[in-house]
Amino acid sequence: MPDPVLRLSRFTRRFHGPAAPPVLDRLDLTIPAGEFVALLGRSGSGKTTLLRTLAGLDPVTEGTASLPARRAVVFQEPRLLPWKPVWRNVALGLPGEAAVTRQRALAALQEVELSHRATAWPLTLSGGEAQRVGLARALVREPELLLLDEPFAALDALTRLRMQSLVGELWQRHRPAVLLVTHDVEEALLLADRVLVLAAGRLVEDLAVDLPRPRRRAAAAFDTLRVRLLATLGVDENGHDATARAA
């Protein structure tokens, strides 16, 4: 097994002082280099909180976290600077000479098939294009750990499918470790080597996905895993709230 790029140990996070109930509760998590991990959870389960810490936006106060130096994030909203043309957004914060960073930015844009929009203003992009720029901005940093915070949630269904396969291809080409935060079970099963489920601040499921790639939603094994994950999330196959019915 390759060296882990990410290791959390008894990582705990509270929002309102040391006595408050934890949002993330003594989490242990290890992600080896190059592994694609999906993190599922209902709203309020602490997914985003975990991602913020891994991105370096929130400090680690309880427990330990060892993180790689090169990390990059794709947010749910593209978060492009509207006053900078696309390629400058991609090159934002890259160290080095302007000519070199420009070349790197253009190369990254080519990978997401957006070379023709390099000099466009971000506000003229479609939702899918803007999200691809966000992806290029993350890739250009050659991250060891790529954090994806529900990056397809705001896209229409067709664009989402294209983006999912693009992310899959880019991951296979560059092989960063990926943590994909999502609430879409199928998306997780399409892309990830391993699916985690977070509930009430604890990891309640750690499921290896040993399906051959490219994966097909129609495959029987795919469906078995889907039903199992939905059950863990407390939803039955017809979309009913299983926990509510049990209660």
């Binding site: 370096g56 936006l57 978060r79 600077l81 934002l92 914060g93 901005r137």
Partner: peptide, 9 residues
């Protein structure tokens, strides 16, 4: 946007 700036170094 400020957060994005921080994340991207």
């Amino acid at each position: 946007l400020l957060e994005a700036g921080r994340v991207f170094g």
